[in-house]
Design a protein around this nucleic acid. Structure first.
Lengths: 210, 210
DNA sequence: GGCGGTTACCCAATGCTGGGGTATTCGTTG
DNA sequence: CAACGAATACCCCAGCATTGGGTAACCGCC
């Protein structure tokens, strides 16, 4: 019976999309819709009553709160729910913001019957449903630049700089003299065309040098 | 004919696994094995002749070079190839190291006929094949801690600290006095129980506060 | 033998850092 | 309304870090 079904909450302002999601989810023997809201504010108020296992959250929502902020608060008030973001966009920044906010899956509104149910199944078994394109975006985000102008040692030192280490701490950690760290750092600055630590870190991140 | 088939290179020291991979890949109309080697050193020598579109790379390899280093050099010498890591482990650190080194997919040695071919298909269409568990590990890696003890402003300042910014730069960027940045930073140090920038950054990363 | 990478040292001026305080304003919440 | 947390701002001070300018030795590899 319904006691064994995973409880799905839907936050989506478009009534047609919301009702079609309700129909699809309820058609499954594994899942049941516990409630549907058109705004995060509403949904958050009833989390303790709805007790969702999975939340389908639209990113583009009316009112003060979009799905990104909504996911954060949702995770805060009801941490056990897994959140799947639903969106029309596959824009890079939006995806990463959504993932940072606590989402564990990312599907598009054009998702059909099978795609929606398989996303629910995937997240239920501890996976992270997402499109091929988004999976690749996420993986590419990890890759470090193979064309770095820096040597191995310089990269090692840039890593320590990005951890906030001072010349002294770097020299102690690498068993080299303080003056040697200075030399390496001067060379790093020249190669990256920067002249202070913060700019070096910014460049290291933007060009994925570490 | 073979001109339209994606060229697959196999780097795997276990002869049995290697030959079974060869048979499976060649059984597909979309893929052909161009070569198989038992070490990265060998594979790298022949990249310009083999011209792989996809590399199936074992992580645990004999000789000086493991699959992580191998993937780096491979990406360096032949950047157009997509690399799929093949391993027996789904260990967290190893996965992230592999992804950083340039891999775009991650499958286990226990992969059967269908799993191997679907990984090849997935990577061909621009995706990133990986198991449910790894997908979730990767996604979880993005999540920021919802139970941070820091206020919004403090988190903002911690972010700037992690970018290497000085008190002065922070105050200029946030349009506050230098003394105010100092106050916030003192409060951050107290809450995180640290007493310098590097420790704060380390804690911010380990506890995913930013 | 030359080249790149790593190590090491000199001088000097500037200003950042961290620890110790205190205090005002503002919005929320009880 | 009173209390509280959050954000703002200022004081003093010792000490060390940072950046910029050089020069040079040693090692391994091609």
């Amino acid at each position: 019976m319904s006691e064994n079904k995973k409880r799905v909450l839907i936050v989506e302002d478009d009534k047609e999309i919301r009702s079609s999601f309700v129909v699809i989810v309820n058609s499954s023997s594994q899942f049941q819709v516990v409630n549907g809201y058109s705004s995060c504010e509403e949904a958050i108020k009833h989390l303790n009553a709805d007790k969702p296992d999975i939340v389908l959250m639209d990113i583009e929502l009316p009112g003060g709160m979009n799905g990104i902020k909504g996911a954060k608060i949702n995770k805060d008030k009801w941490p056990s729910a897994d959140i799947i973001m639903v969106t029309v966009y596959e824009d890079s920044d939006l995806v990463f913001e959504a993932l940072k906010s606590g989402a564990s899956g990312y599907i598009t509104k054009s998702a059909n019957y099978r795609e929606l149910l398989s996303a629910l199944e995937e997240i239920s078994k501890g996976g992270a449903p997402m499109s091929s394109k988004i999976a690749r975006m996420v993986i590419d985000n990890f890759h470090v630049n193979p064309n770095s102008p820096l040597t191995k040692r310089e990269t090692e030192i840039l890593q320590l700089i990005s951890e906030g280490k001072t010349y002294t701490q770097i020299s102690e950690q690498l068993f080299i003299s303080k003056e040697t760290s200075k030399t390496h750092i001067k060379n790093i600055y020249a190669k990256l065309q920067v002249n202070c630590k913060s700019e070096a870190i910014a460049k290291a991140n933007s060009e994925k040098l570490i």
